[in-house]
């Protein structure tokens, strides 16, 4: 279970993201990976998502929580890589515009705590 960036080199990832954006122009390519030291949240069955650009972060987090069948009491944070938490009212398009990686993907990490130790 290597991180996505270690499974494919930069050129491949960049080409893949560009191809996806041309085929699915209304979707944002998002890579969601579990925090490497996460102990409480289960692994997601999917890593790679194509997300409607108008979906808000709140809606997206809800979808992922439901996918993982989390209890309402279970803490879940979706962090934008290298930037921490994004405002929940932002749309995926806005988050992508501000935080997309050089390869064209948007990277997120999920964890049961909002700050990494």
């Amino acid at each position: 279970n290597k991180p996505f960036k270690l499974r494919k080199n930069f050129v491949t990832r960049k080409q893949e993201a560009a191809g996806i954006r041309s085929k699915f122009s209304n979707k944002i390519p998002v890579i969601i990976e579990r925090y490497e030291r996460e102990k409480f949240l289960p692994p997601l069955d999917k890593t790679k998502f194509l997300v409607p650009h108008e979906l808000t972060m709140t809606q997206f987090v809800t979808i992922i929580r439901n996918r993982m069948a989390l209890l309402p009491t279970q803490a879940f944070y979706l962090l934008i890589d290298n930037s921490g938490l994004a405002s929940m009212s932002l749309t995926m398009a806005q988050v992508y515009k501000d935080h997309q990686d050089e390869d064209g993907f948007l990277y997120m990490t999920y964890a049961s705590q909002e700050m990494f130790g």
């Binding site: 085929k23 699915f24 999917k46 790679k48 998502f49 809800t62 439901n66």
Partner: peptide, 28 residues
């Protein structure tokens, strides 16, 4: 002739209602 490696990537495609369908992106 050398075989062309074809890789299938599976993406989870979300709609606005939270439904997920799987799409395979074939790349060579």
């Amino acid at each position: 002739p050398a075989a062309t490696a074809v890789a299938k990537n599976v993406y989870a495609v979300l709609d606005l209602y939270g439904r997920i369908t799987a799409v395979s992106i074939v790349s060579s």
